[in-house]
């Protein structure tokens, strides 16, 4: 499975969400995108963005000061 990493450290919401959105636009369905962030707000906002736009959250985890959200790009109409 293809996985790409997005460095969204130091960005405040909604910037990490915008970066995820713009990155996802160029990825094919099935790809996993791992967003590495430092704003805890992403734990709410990226899953909300996924629900709204039809993508799947695979995993969210906290590592020290970093918040990592892994999503799977779904086919959207």
């Amino acid at each position: 499975m293809k996985r790409v990493v997005l460095d969204a450290r130091r960005l405040l919401c909604p910037m990490p969400v915008i970066r995820v959105q713009d990155r996802v636009a160029g990825l094919s369905p099935g790809t996993e995108l791992e967003a590495v962030c430092t704003d805890p707000g992403v734990l709410n906002d990226i899953p909300a963005w996924c629900r709204v736009n039809g993508h799947t959250v695979v995993e969210t985890r906290t590592e020290g000061d970093e918040y990592i959200v892994v999503i799977r790009v779904e086919p959207t109409g």
Binding site: P14, W49, R51, G54, T76
Partner: peptide, 22 residues
């Protein structure tokens, strides 16, 4: 307080897609 993004919350209430533009 809830740390939600209000625009995403609104989109979710409406069940619509949301495009966030920088």
């Amino acid at each position: 307080r809830p740390k939600r993004n209000n625009a995403l919350w609104v989109a979710e209430q409406l069940g619509i897609r949301l495009h966030i533009v920088d």
